[in-house]
Design a protein around this nucleic acid. Structure first.
Length: 283
DNA sequence: ATGGTTGTTTAACAA
């Protein structure tokens, strides 16, 4: 399963999905309404069968369902709110919503679970960013982040193993040293602190999740999916982090036939600060 | 060390 080649693609270099696979793309879109043209561009380039979005920033009654149907996503599940958060699963394949939406006693639109044909459960997750101060006592947003990850851990621990499942999304944690531009300089920066990394490791272990990116591209290969808006030249400084993840249950790992980080999207007009991440699975 | 940018909504707030 290991590949020495880079999973990064710029616009022209993205291969078609392998025969007999479905292509699933996850993307923190940072406003679905503002970036509809970018979704259209992604669809033309990558032809995803399923597109999982985070940070749609859009209440359900204002969700651009018709425009996305016109792009071929006739099956949709979305769960949004005003201004913040929001997740959506857009699909060419039939989906039915199944599973919990709420965590930490909040209805803050960070998790959607759907069933795919064949009974695979797909989870679209948006973990809280956690604010600036990595101290749960001083910073309620960081506490919420840790609590949310713990809630996910409890959920996956009690879920029966053996059923094929996929978990994707913006988990807002870069778990390994090669997932950030400087391990040493980010040890105290929310997204890469030891307590978050440990929390995410527990969540992963709770269901035997396979981290697709790292299974195919082990350390020390550096992998990022997010580059801050606050760098004048993101490509030159390359101060990225791997915050967006695709996890599969062990039975699905051998069915993963392709994995791509669409880095070129960071240079599109009015880009998201996250880029799309794609996986091709024989399902 | 600090500040750097973006989106939603309109001066903060979150990321």
């Amino acid at each position: 399963m290991t590949e020495a080649i880079s999973p990064y693609t710029d616009d022209a270099a993205l291969p078609k999905a392998a025969r007999g696979t479905a292509r699933l793309v996850t993307w923190n879109i940072n406003s679905v309404r503002l970036r509809l043209p970018l979704i259209e561009k992604l669809v033309g380039l990558a032809r995803p069968d399923i597109l999982c979005l985070q940070e749609t920033k859009c209440p359900d009654e204002a969700f651009p369902a018709d425009a996305l149907k016109a792009m071929g996503f006739v099956h949709q599940a979305f769960h949004g709110m005003k201004s913040y958060n929001g997740v959506a699963v857009l699909s060419r394949l039939p989906i039915t919503e199944a599973g919990p939406r709420h965590h930490c006693g909040l209805e803050d639109c960070r998790h959607l679970a759907v069933s795919l044909p064949g009974g695979i459960e797909l989870n679209d997750v948006y973990v809280p960013a956690g604010g600036d101060e990595p101290d749960p006592k001083a910073n309620p947003k960081f506490k919420h982040k840790l609590d949310f990850v713990a809630s996910q851990t409890a959920l996956w621990k009690k879920r029966k193993a053996g059923r094929p499942a996929i978990l994707v999304g913006d988990l807002n944690i870069a778990p390994f040293e090669a997932d950030v531009w400087s391990h040493r300089q980010l040890l105290d920066v929310v997204s890469h602190t030891p307590v978050e990394v440990e929390g995410l490791a527990k969540m992963r272990a709770a269901h035997g999740w396979v981290d697709v990116a790292r299974a195919r591209h082990p350390e020390p290969q550096r992998l990022y999916t997010w580059w801050s808006y606050r760098n004048s030249d993101w490509r030159k400084s390359d101060r990225g982090r791997r915050l967006d993840h695709i996890w599969v249950t062990p039975d699905l790992a051998p069915k993963v036939k392709g994995f791509h980080i669409l880095r070129g999207a960071r240079d599109w007009t009015q880009p998201s600060d996250h880029v799309p991440v794609a996986v091709d699975i024989a399902i």
